[in-house]
Design a protein around this nucleic acid. Structure first.
Lengths: 341, 341
DNA sequence: ACGATTTGCTAACACGATTCAGTAACGCGC
DNA sequence: GCGCGTTACTGAATCGTGTTAGCAAATCGT
């Protein structure tokens, strides 16, 4: 109906020049010598007619598209948002678009998603996961430059961007150590995944450097739920020498820990200090007291992924194929000074 | 480099037919009489060569694209995810794509976003917001069919999909009334927005039908934060005849309410019953006790939006321009029977 | 056995850009 | 007034597909 699309030819006619000239002017090709007067005339005509370039035609003719594909598990995640946001932002600034495809549910879905994206002529691919882990990349993803975000492949064939779990664990423990705590508990986020291994490694290192030794009984396995935090905390606090501080593997665990502590008649951030992990925005700043935690830099990871992809598409050499993004602490009110004075 | 794109012409040559025939077969045009044997030969050739259709060329030639544009505030929202997810799913099932553009930050951004999407030849637009409200639609959105999700325009020019706030408020109050509560408090989610007005209206209606009259002092204004829930609850419970149940305008308010109740030495779900609103997945099911709340149907709204858009694009008449999606209760453990026996 | 219909395909134009190769007009030095 | 370089453009091919119109051969009806 109102599909009265104005084409370059229309603009050309209106300005009294050829399509070629219009193309040069509108794309800002300066190497062709076209006087300011003509440029202005063409731009004016384009504006008057309400000219809107046809991206499909452009893609076809130039063999270069203005978008990247992002494959992610939309389903289970408040995190996906942040990755998308960061990637979106970076792409948008270069005039690029993000085509988001879901990789949920059945296996093989990701292969189909990549296939669909390739059909759309994406210039590059980002594959992102909601929790940090190893994945096997669908074979067809090799057709274009591809970057992994929050995940990695076994042989390191693909460049990847992951959070610095070790650094995060280190900072968490350091915060507690610096506050004077020497008896520190830890409830793990899960067992055997990069998040748990990294965070625990970082914690151990920080404690060692502060001359604190941590008994194995102070580390209790959790499963990422508030329930596991609740029970883990009960376990820790019922020991003969209960810790004065607990590093919780994630914010939900911290949430459960709060409940257990309060039920025992103790006060979080006074009697017992807590540090979480993830910095979930609808959780951590709203807990009482507000949770001190370590942020997972999803937005920055999405951003870094797109930057990396841009470099690859432009053919620049990649100096660093394994980018880790720092996990910055968010100091709030759940850690108390503990001390010997 | 590996851009060895296989075209229809290649498939045609391999199968020993013309390009036209390949196009017919691959698009499943049955009105042209082509024997099964030829079809099979062509399909085989396409598979062997790894043929992948070029969406840009297809869009250009057919003047119909396989994607919709979704404009949303990516930034501030765990909700955006769900809308995207629902829309994604619906679009995907019809072989369509969702092009997601951010409308954040500066005003005018949404206009630019729509412009960009139109350049990509989107066949329709969805404009979604993170909280239910009135918006002014960018003028250029009228170029293609356009549906509003979780928002609406002043004159109802555009079809919209919004949550049934009144129904949600009704159900929330009904849950409490049915449990035997007659003295019910309410902490509003904000002041003067559709969510507050609708939920409060629904609550009043339910209470009236149950023969319960609610004093104005039982309604305290909140601002959507946990803090306002905390203080609101203190206000309510320090009254001469404190309520036995509180309907919280959202889940974060409920979170604050929990803290206030526990601090007073009372037990949530036993001494005081709580109903929330939103059903934030990383919050409500993890609270202790698990929060009974009313869900905001973001995913369904995204889905409904795309369905509506599909109808419009196909030119079907729209029977219902103002779709409201129900807000279903999620019964958990924060409501206790209160009673006269 | 002959015209009419069906079957099985193909030629050719269109879509809206990009881009390479080329050219007409003009100024300028000598 | 001839050659040369610059300025200001334009023509035509190309990208990969959709789509209409039509053609040759096979089949059918009588």
């Amino acid at each position: 109906m109102s599909q009265q699309s104005v084409t370059m030819a229309d603009v050309a006619k209106a300005a009294g020049v050829s399509r070629t000239t219009v193309s040069f002017v509108l794309n800002g090709r300066m190497e062709s010598s076209i006087p300011e007067s003509t440029r202005e005339r063409i731009n004016q005509a384009a504006r008057d007619l309400g000219y809107r370039p046809n991206a499909a035609a452009r893609t076809l003719a130039s063999k270069r598209s203005s978008w990247f594909g992002l494959v992610t598990e939309i389903a289970t995640s408040p995190f996906a948002t942040d990755v998308i946001k960061g990637a979106q932002q970076a792409a948008w600034e270069d005039g690029n678009f993000l085509l988001v495809a879901p990789s949920d549910a059945e296996p093989g879905m990701d292969h189909r998603a990549v296939e669909k994206l390739l059909e759309q002529q994406v210039g590059g691919l980002i594959i992102a996961t909601t929790w940090h882990r190893e994945i096997t990349v669908p074979a067809n993803a090799r057709a274009v430059p591809c970057v992994l975000v929050n995940c990695f492949d076994a042989d390191g064939e693909f460049p990847s961007v992951v959070p610095d779990e070790i650094g995060g664990g280190y900072v968490a423990a350091e915060i507690l150590a610096n506050a004077g705590h020497t008896n520190i508990g830890h409830i793990t986020v899960a067992t055997g995944i990069p998040a748990q291994i990294g965070r625990q490694t970082g914690m151990k290192q920080a404690l060692r450097e502060h001359g604190i030794e941590q008994d194995d009984s102070k580390i209790v396995p959790g499963d990422g739920t508030a329930d596991s935090g609740y029970h883990g905390t009960q376990t820790l606090l019922s020991q003969p020498d209960p810790p004065s501080a607990i590093f919780c593997g994630n914010d939900r665990i911290a949430m459960g820990a709060y409940d257990a502590i309060k039920e025992l008649g103790l006060r979080v951030g006074e009697d017992i200090s807590i540090v979480g992990f993830d910095d979930q925005e609808i959780l951590a700043p709203h807990m009482r007291p507000k949770l001190t935690t370590i942020a997972l830099p999803f937005e920055e990871m999405g951003l870094a992924g797109v930057s990396l992809l841009n470099q690859m598409v432009e053919g620049s050499p990649i100096e660093n194929r394994q980018i880790t993004i720092g996990c910055p602490p968010r100091i709030r009110s759940s850690v108390a000074l503990h001390g010997q004075r």
